[in-house]
Each structure stands twice: as C-alpha cells, then as structure tokens.
C-alpha cells in the first residue's frame, strides 16, 4: 500500500552519502581522534587491569567508603569478588575503563552546553530537540557510522557511547541552573558580582545536586551502551554477552550479565552518594531536621 501512495524517501541513502563524505573529507582528523582516544583508553585499562585483582577491588571499595559508608564498601567488595569468581574481572575492568572515559568526555561536553543553554533561551530551544533525537535513537544505530568512520576496536564504541549518553548531562545541568532561586541570583547581581562569579559561587553550587543526578544518568547510560558496543568489538563484558548470544551459551550470558549488574550498582550508588555529599544538599538536609 504505502509503496504506491508515498514515494520512497531515500533518507537512509542520504545519511549514508553524508557519512561517506565526512569519512573521506576528515580522515586525518578521525585518525587523530582514534589515536588519542585509543591511547587514553589503553592507559586507563592498564591502570585498572594490570594490578592484582584484590588491589583494585580494595581501592574501589575504599572509594565507596569515602563516598558513602562501610556498608556500601563491603557490598562492593563482595560484588567484586563475585565478578572475579565468575572469571569476568578483566572484562569488567575493560568495561569500567570504557564507561569512565566515555562518561567523562560526555560530561565535559554536556555540562558546559547545559550551562550555556540555561543562560540562553535560543541555545536551549535548539539543543532540546537535538538531545531528544540523540537519546531516543536506538543506541546501536550510532555504532554503524562510527564503525564506518573508526573501523573496529574500542574507539567507535566510545564515540557512540558519548553521543548516546550525553543528553541527560545537558538536560540536568540546564534544569539545575534554571531552578536556582531567582532572587538569590538577583542578590548576586544586586551586590555587583560578575556573571562568572554568580555562576561559580551561586548557580553551580546550588545546581550541584541536580547536576550530579545528571552525572549519574550519564554514567548509567554509558554502561548500557558500552555493553552494546561489545557487538563491534569494543571489548569488555559486552563481548562475552554477544558471544553468549551467538553460541546460545546461557551460563556465559548469565555470568557476564551479573558482572554488568554489579558494576552498574556500584557506579550508581557511588555517584548518587557523591551528589548527596554536595554542601548544598547537606544544607537542605539540615533544613529538614
């Protein structure tokens, strides 16, 4: 039916041409990006994976202790032992390196963009639909052009993850800043503070809990995307998940899956705890007492 009523819209063809054109035109740039990202990834992975398992596990547990409490630290430690026990430790560290790198870059772009959008309605109006697009497009669709551009290895996965996971970072930053009590910002202006100072001393500190919620989301989305990136050889837990799927290997699938869950819980609890530790949040908690 639709074949006869609506002419075939060659949207995909156009995107294909666009990606081809971009690939050939910016080849040196992409080479450079690939080298840099690949290098940073290798370094990060080396830091996480080369020490003995128990050293890294204890360091991460201490981080959990600092961020929240001994319960979380103990739980994390048990989780890490489980990961090592199902023989997924090295994969988990690769995944962790991918997540940390992708999320860090995503946030590096997202937070300034969110600040800009909060201060400028026009920017906000442009950014919003773009973010909607980026977040709702099925994640692995990004893998296709990135593989075309960067071929295989961890880098296409990292790039796809950055794009997929960035949206909440922008959104929450903008929301957080816009939510800051207008009169408090006015007070800054009334006493003659510069806009930069108002941003640094009033808007960002007060927006911090919301921004941290965004950071948490970015990290969780990164993790989900990084596992997906296993399909294109990004390495880590995703690769075993994909392998398990292909071989219909329930045991392997479950073991890799449980490692993902443990990692997710660790990252979620720690970043959420960091948000609660912001001085502003503590001030608000004090108000409730």
């Amino acid at each position: 039916m639709t074949d006869t009523l609506v002419p075939r819209l060659p949207l995909g063809q156009w995107v294909d041409w666009l990606v081809d054109w971009v690939t050939t035109t910016f080849r040196p740039l992409f080479r450079f990006i690939k080298d840099v990202l690949g290098g940073v990834y290798d370094g990060l992975d080396a830091v996480l994976a080369s020490p003995p398992f128990w050293v890294v596990a204890i360091v991460l547990a201490v981080l959990a202790l600092l961020a929240k409490n001994w319960k979380l630290a103990l739980g994390s430690l048990v989780g890490f032992v489980v990961i090592a026990g199902v023989n997924q430790w090295d994969n988990a560290m690769e995944t962790l390196a991918l997540v940390l790198l992708s999320a860090a870059i995503a946030l590096l772009v997202a937070i300034p963009l969110g600040i800009w959008a909060a201060r400028n309605d026009r920017v906000s109006a442009i950014v919003r639909p773009v973010l909607d697009f980026m977040q709702t497009m099925p994640g692995f669709v990004y893998l296709i052009p990135t593989v075309v551009i960067f071929l295989t290895g961890p880098v296409p996965g990292i790039i796809a993850t950055i794009i997929f996971a960035m949206a909440p970072g922008v959104r929450f930053t903008e929301l957080g800043i816009r939510q800051v009590d207008k009169e408090v910002v006015e007070a800054g202006h009334a006493f003659g503070a510069t806009p930069a100072r108002i941003l640094g001393q009033i808007q960002l500190p007060l927006a911090l809990p919301t921004v941290m919620a965004g950071v948490n989301q970015v990290i969780m989305l990164s993790l989900s995307m990084v596992v997906l990136a296993g399909m294109v050889g990004a390495g880590g837990l995703g690769e075993d998940v994909v392998a398990a799927l292909q071989r219909v290997d329930v045991a392997l699938g479950f073991e890799a899956g449980i490692a993902v869950v443990i990692l997710a819980m660790f990252l979620d609890r720690v970043t959420a705890a960091l948000g609660e530790r912001a001085p502003v949040s503590r001030a608000l908690v004090a108000a409730r007492d």
Binding site: D181, E183, V184, E186, A187, A190, P279, V280, L284
Partner: peptide
C-alpha cells in the same frame, strides 16, 4: 530582599 535571598550553602 523581600524573600531574603540568602545563599543557602
């Protein structure tokens, strides 16, 4: 300010 506008942190 009418509603104080203190820096809560």
């Amino acid at each position: 300010f009418q509603h104080f506008a203190l820096l809560p942190h």
